[in-house]
Each structure stands twice: as C-alpha cells, then as structure tokens.
C-alpha cells in the first residue's frame, strides 16, 4: 500500500533561517504517526506544507497521492486539520459554524457534525466566543472530522486543555485509527503520545533525528546508569549506538543507548572502575530528551532514510 504521506528531501528556508533541513519520511496508511519536537523545531511548518499552505524550498511532498503545493484544494478536501491555536469566527454559534463549513464539503458533513457535537457534548446554539477553551477545541475537532477525512492532522491539539477534553481528543484519534484512517499528531503531551502512537518521528532544529515504530524504539533503546568507584572516570569503548551521554567525567553517568551488542553491557560491568551498570527501559519522554540533547550542530547524527518496519511482525510470541 502506498504511504499516505511521503516527504522526500524537503527543505524550507525563511530568509537565513532553515526551518526544515532535508527531511524525508513516510507515513503509512492506517497508523497513528506522532511528530515530536520542541517549540520552533519545524513541526508546524512541516504540517502547513502538507496542507499546501506553505511552499517548500526544496524537495517533494505527496499527500494521498497528490502534491499539496499544486493540488492543495483537493488535498484539503480529504484531510482534516486541527491547527494549534485555532481561529474561529467568534460571533458564530456552534451550529452556524458547522453549517458554514458544510458548504465547502460534501453533503453528509452536517449530520456527521451533529453527531460529533453530541458526542462531545457541545451546546449547539451557544456562540463560540462564550465557549471555554476546551469547548472551542472540541468545535475545531468536530469540524475537522465531520467530513470523514482519510487523514487527520492534529497540531498540538490538546495544549492547555483539561483532562476530560484531552480524553475526548484521544478517543477521537483512536476512532479514526480504528476505522483504518491515518492520524498525524504533533504534540507535547508525550505520555499521551506514548499511549496511542504507532510511529514516532522526532524533529530537532529542522532535522529529523529519528523516525521509527514506537515499539522498536522501546525495544531497542535502553537507559544505562553507570556508577564509577575509582578515579578513572572515562568510559571504555563498547559496541552500541549512544544517543546521549549525561554527566561525563562524573561518578554516576547516564547513557541512552540503542541496539547494544549482546555483550556490551557485560563488558561494561566487568570493566574495572565501574562498580555497577543499571539498565532501565526508558520512557518515551526520556528517549525524546535524549535525542534532543544530541544537537545536530554538535556532531549528532540525524537520520535521513525512511522508517524501518517493526522488527517482529511475526511475534505471536511468548509472554515473557
């Protein structure tokens, strides 16, 4: 199956500032794709380019088989978008907003919108300016989902919202994914992402640091805490991809490593001067921070090739 989104070597510059630097990734159909990155990393720019609201300086983009730069209208017809800080016409009521937007889509927009409003418990005749922040967010979500888009793009949808509303958003995302459609989510709420994401991409200063299935990341990445007991505070070489190294030249050092060789851990443990190496499974937040501390300008290694498929499709597996 063709991926829903294909981004190939996309660069976007604003004057001297480079917002996206040679990014390539694919979003397969039917998954929940999470885009993580700090503020200003380039996530919103990437999303706007996907919708045809911005122009790339280099590279190609394909969304649902169409080029959004050329066929933005057709793309937007099949994509639902929940922007960060959404803007609505405050003087409209909820139902008026739905009616207005329905004019631009197909006929079953309004019934879907009504159903979604009921689901979200939105008062239909209340003016948008009197709604709370959560209410507004729900309206925007309802408008984005009412035309049953193939791809739902959400740009930090739950920032600043209360728990109940966030829960509603999560449920909607899950509904969309369960219906076989794709969700692209850009968020700061990493615990949420950890629950629902299939794939995770981390963007840092315009560079794509990693793009992989969450499973793979969790399986392959480990957090090691190394305790030294002597005066020798240097780490011996070992075979593993070190994503981040915290506290060099100290008695306790933390390493985030990926795909360590089977004996790398024992080598370290056996090394004189190292009293102990604790192994933990990192949370997604720790993984995220680790990748971000690895600034590409400081010699880190961003990833430019496509994602890898999950390693154990055939797991079936034992429960251990």
């Amino acid at each position: 199956m063709n991926p829903v989104i294909q981004i190939k070597h996309v660069t976007r510059r604003f004057g001297n500032k480079v917002a996206l630097d040679n990014i390539s990734l694919d979003v397969p159909r039917g998954c929940v794709f999470a885009l993580l990155g700090e503020n200003g990393a380039g996530k919103t720019t990437a999303i706007r380019n996907l919708l045809g609201l911005d122009r790339v300086s280099a590279g190609t983009i394909e969304v649902l088989g169409m080029n959004p730069q050329k066929h933005g209208t057709a793309v937007r017809r099949q994509v639902g978008y929940v922007p960060d800080t959404p803007a609505l016409y405050d003087w409209m009521t909820v139902s008026e907003a739905g009616w207005f937007t329905a004019g631009f889509y197909a006929d079953d927009f309004l019934p879907n919108f009504s159903r979604l409003c009921e689901q979200f418990e939105l008062p239909r005749s209340q003016k948008i300016k009197t709604l709370s922040k959560g209410g507004r967010a729900k309206v925007v979500l309802a408008l984005a989902m009412a035309h049953e888009p193939e791809l739902l793009i959400m740009d930090e949808p739950t920032s600043g919202l209360d728990t109940l509303v966030r829960r509603k958003f999560l449920e909607s995302m899950i509904d969309v994914a369960a219906a076989g459609r794709t969700v692209l989510l850009s968020s700061h709420q990493i615990p949420e992402v950890e629950r629902v994401a299939d794939l995770v991409a981390i963007i840092h200063e315009g560079h794509l640091m990693v793009c992989d299935h969450l499973e793979n990341l969790k399986r392959e990445i480990e957090r090691w805490v190394v305790s030294f007991d002597g005066t020798e505070l240097n780490l011996p070489p070992f075979e593993a991809e070190v994503i981040s190294h915290a506290g060099p030249q100290r008695k306790r050092q933390q390493l985030i490593v990926r795909n360590p060789a089977p004996d790398a851990l024992w080598r370290l443990r056996d090394h004189p001067g190292i009293s102990e190496v604790e192994v933990h499974t990192p949370t997604l937040e720790e993984i995220f921070v680790a990748f971000l501390s690895n600034s590409p300008d400081a010699g880190g290694r961003p990833i430019n090739d496509g994602l890898r498929s999950p390693a154990d499709q055939s797991s079936g597996g034992s429960i251990t």
Binding site: E171, I174, D175, A177, A178, E192, R195, A197, D198
Partner: peptide
C-alpha cells in the same frame, strides 16, 4: 471490540 477497548484504555487500536 478492538475499538472499544482501545477507546477505553486510550491506547492505539493496533
């Protein structure tokens, strides 16, 4: 169902 359980647990249906 997968969908209902995923919604309840707030995790990915996959």
């Amino acid at each position: 169902s997968v969908r209902e359980l995923a919604r309840e647990l707030a995790i990915n249906p996959n």
